[in-house]
Simulated scan of single mutants.
Amino acid sequence: MTYVNTGSFVTQPGHRDAVVAILTRHSPQLAASGCLSYEVGVDEDHPDTVFVAETWTSASAHEQSLQLESTREAIAEAMPLLTGEMTQQHFTSVGSPLQD
């Protein structure tokens, strides 16, 4: 089973692409800390929103990743570009039709 964290961030008008650039920077530390996938997306119907879907080996691996220097730096860089409006959902995956 894996831990899944999804959410969205509303950016200050016109800053979506800057937030996407921050969130999509190559980060070998994430994989090393237990991140299995980290997908960043946009939807043209919501031009100031960034969506993120992450899968992790465990909830604790996700929690520990928030203490990585690279993660903390990315958060500090992105925060001034966000409105503070965010959503978050998390769950334990119990299976997938794509995996045995």
Rank of each mutant, 00 (worst) to 15 (best):
S27T: 06
G7D: 05
S65G: 02
T83I: 13
V4T: 10
M1C: 01
R72V: 02
Q88Y: 14
T24S: 15
I75V: 08
A53H: 06
A59M: 15
F51C: 06
E54I: 02
T57D: 03
L68V: 05
L36K: 00
R16P: 06
I75K: 12
D48A: 14
Q89Y: 04
A76G: 10
A32E: 14
G7Q: 07
D17E: 12
P80V: 08
T11H: 05
V10I: 13
D45M: 15
G7T: 01
N5F: 04
Q67Y: 07
M1W: 08
S65M: 04
H15M: 15
T87D: 00
L81T: 00
A53Q: 10
G41M: 08
V50N: 02
A53M: 09
A32D: 02
G95R: 05
E69M: 12
M79W: 13
I75H: 08
A21H: 13
S65H: 06
S33T: 04
T71E: 02
E39P: 07
V50T: 03
R25E: 11
R16V: 06
G95N: 11
L30A: 10
P13A: 09
L30S: 03
L23K: 03
R16T: 13
M86S: 15
R16Q: 12
Q89A: 06
E73G: 07
E77I: 13
G14S: 05
H90G: 08
R72D: 00
G84N: 09
S60T: 06
G95S: 00
S96H: 11
S27C: 09
T6G: 11
R72H: 01
T71S: 10
Y38I: 04
Q89V: 13
P28D: 09
Q88L: 12
G95T: 14
S58F: 00
S27P: 02
V50M: 04
R16L: 07
T2E: 15
E44G: 09
T83A: 12
T2H: 14
F91Q: 01
A61P: 09
D48Y: 15
E63R: 07
N5P: 05
Q99K: 07
P47Y: 14
V50Q: 03
N5D: 09
G7V: 10
S60M: 05
N5C: 07
G14V: 08
Q29Y: 10
S96G: 10
Q67R: 01
L82Q: 04
D45A: 15
E44D: 14
F91R: 06
S93D: 08
Q88D: 15
E63Y: 04
L98H: 06
D43M: 10
F9C: 05
E85F: 13
Q67I: 05
S70G: 12
V10G: 03
D100I: 05
S58I: 07
E39V: 15
V52P: 04
Y3T: 01
Y3S: 01
P80W: 13
A18G: 12
T11F: 02
F91I: 10
L98P: 00
H46W: 14
D43R: 14
I75A: 10
P97W: 05
S93E: 00
E39M: 13
S70Q: 07
S93A: 08
H15I: 10
H62K: 15
